[in-house]
Deep mutational scan, measured.
Amino acid sequence: ARCQGVVCAMKEAFGFIERGDVVKEIFFHYSEFKGDLETLQPGDDVEFTIKDRNGKEVATDVRLLPQGTVI
């Protein structure tokens, strides 16, 4: 199932997405972002798939959504 959220933090090689369905942040590695990383910034709406890696939830297949998609 695809989830939606808003990019809330960006570091050197990874970032965090504030999920739209639950009050929780989820980790994503930049290699999982399908698009131009140069244009990705905090506040952007994205959709993603949640996978379990070593007992921790991570966002994979992260894709940009049109602004205003995530309420």
Rank of each mutant, 00 (worst) to 15 (best):
K34P: 02
T60A: 11
D44C: 14
E25K: 12
F14W: 13
T60G: 06
R53N: 15
R53I: 12
K51S: 11
N54Y: 04
E57M: 09
H29C: 09
L64K: 15
D21P: 10
H29V: 05
V6T: 15
N54R: 14
K34G: 08
G15V: 02
D52V: 11
F48V: 02
V6I: 11
T60F: 03
D44V: 12
L65T: 14
G68A: 09
S31L: 05
F27P: 13
C3W: 04
Y30Q: 04
D45R: 13
L37R: 09
A1E: 11
V62Y: 01
K34H: 10
M10N: 00
L65C: 07
G15R: 00
G43Y: 03
V7Y: 03
G20I: 11
A59N: 01
I50G: 02
R53Y: 15
P42M: 05
R2I: 13
E57H: 07
T69N: 10
Q41G: 06
E38Q: 11
T49L: 10
E25I: 10
T69Y: 03
E12M: 04
G55H: 03
A13F: 10
I50F: 03
D44Q: 13
I50N: 02
R19F: 11
E25Y: 07
F16M: 04
V23C: 11
K51E: 14
R2N: 14
G5A: 01
S31K: 13
D44H: 11
R63L: 05
Q4V: 06
C3R: 14
F48H: 00
D61N: 15
I17R: 01
Q41I: 07
K24S: 07
R2T: 14
R19L: 07
I50K: 07
E12K: 11
G43H: 02
S31W: 04
E57I: 06
C3I: 15
A1Q: 06
E47T: 11
E32W: 05
D21C: 05
A13G: 12
C8I: 11
Y30C: 05
G43P: 00
G68W: 08
E38G: 12
L40T: 01
E38L: 10
V70D: 14
Q4E: 07
G15T: 00
F27N: 05
S31P: 04
V70T: 13
D44K: 13
D36F: 04
D45W: 06
L64W: 02
L37S: 05
G43I: 00
D52R: 14
G43L: 04
E32I: 00
E57C: 09
F14V: 05
F14K: 03
F28R: 03
D61C: 03
G35Y: 00
Q4R: 07
P42R: 10
E25C: 08
V7Q: 01
Y30D: 02
L37E: 03
E57F: 08
E32D: 05
F14N: 08
T49W: 08
F28C: 00
V58A: 05
K34Y: 07
L37G: 04
T49K: 08
A9C: 04
K56E: 13
G5P: 00
F14D: 09
V62A: 00
V22I: 13
V7A: 00
E25R: 09
G5L: 02
E25M: 10
I26V: 07
V7H: 00
F14Q: 07
I71E: 10
R19Y: 12
P42A: 15
T39Q: 10
E47H: 02
E12L: 08
G68C: 06
I17V: 04
T69W: 06
D36Q: 12
A59D: 03
Q4L: 07
Y30H: 07
K24G: 07
